[in-house]
């Protein structure tokens, strides 16, 4: 029997599943939009991916779950954090990578890798949604466009407006008042992207600048986000073909590395991951993030 490896990345808004064959080639990759962390969405993504690969659950040799909802994934050998998985995935997808910038639905990370692709250091955004996918949703809502249209608009903007509120709650009012003052949607979109890039550069500073740089996570699909990050870093930023699946890909690779069957050091059980109440310390609000369950 040939071996197959399963990597599952259950994020805040999407579930990503990757199936690898014995040689590490991708047999199937699946992304399912959920709206909120959901077991059902995740199970569906797993089933679809296995179907695509023409496999049954029993054909899987080893499996690893990662992502914000990793402890919710059922019937999995063990879990790894997004940090380790994105590092592993990016290093395999883009050999030589030294810095991974992962921006997902509600958090962003800078992950420094050593020359063997092992995580050296990492930094995560603190407690609030500033500069994450959630933040771009706020932007899209304020300037009334679809998420997919943001990049096109932002790349046409040439004015540098000061966006002072990086808090998702306050940014919306600020953006609306910019519109009220007659600022162009393109300029607003460009300015928000630039502001997010500045924040990300700050996050990168915490781990130290390295290159080559690879951008992963859902936000990397936004060409403008990568463009402004490259501008802010004054360095090339590579975006893999499917930046969203890098975490799941890394998880599957770790399963293939043998980590899936190894003694479970972390001793985790699959339990309900409660949504933590997050106090955003740069403002006075307490936000509970994540959708209803």
């Amino acid at each position: 029997m040939t071996a197959h490896y399963l990597g599952v990345d259950l994020g805040s808004t999407t579930a990503k599943v990757v199936v690898l064959d014995e040689g590490g080639a991708i047999e199937a990759a699946e992304v399912v939009q959920m709206g909120a962390v959901s077991r059902k969405g995740c199970a569906q993504a797993m089933t679809t991916a296995l179907d695509t690969a023409g496999l049954h659950r029993g054909d899987v040799t080893a499996s690893i779950a990662t992502g914000y909802g990793r402890r919710l994934v059922e019937d999995i050998d063990r879990t790894f954090t997004e940090i380790t998985c994105h590092g592993r995935g990016a290093a395999a997808m883009c050999p030589g990578t030294r810095l991974v910038v992962d921006i997902g639905g509600q958090d962003s990370k800078a992950i420094a890798l050593d020359d063997e692709g092992i995580v050296d250091n990492f930094a995560m955004n603190d407690r609030c949604a500033s500069g994450t996918g959630r933040f771009f949703e706020v932007l899209a809502r304020a300037i009334e466009c679809e998420i997919d249209e943001l990049a096109g608009l932002a790349l046409q903007g040439d004015k540098d407006l000061e966006v002072s509120s990086m808090c998702a709650t306050f940014a919306e009012t600020e953006l609306i008042s910019m519109l009220a003052q007659g600022e162009r949607r393109e300029d607003i979109a460009a300015s928000v992207h630039r502001a997010v890039a500045t924040r990300t550069v700050g996050l990168i500073a915490q781990v130290g600048r390295r290159s080559p740089i690879v951008m992963t996570g859902g936000v990397a699909r936004n060409a403008a986000a990568a463009h402004f990050l490259a501008e802010g870093m004054q360095a090339e930023v590579t975006v893999p073909e499917s930046p969203q699946i890098i975490g799941a890909y890394g998880a599957a690779l770790l399963a293939r590395d043998g980590a899936g069957r190894a003694a479970v050091g972390a001793g985790e059980t699959t339990t309900d991951a409660r949504e933590p109440a997050r106090s955003c310390n740069t403002c006075d609000l307490t936000l509970t993030m994540g959708g209803p369950r």
Partner: peptide
């Protein structure tokens, strides 16, 4: 924020 703390600690242990 237990969840965030654990993610970070786990990442350290994995490393």
């Amino acid at each position: 924020p237990v969840e965030t703390v654990q993610t970070r600690v786990e990442a350290l242990l994995e490393r």
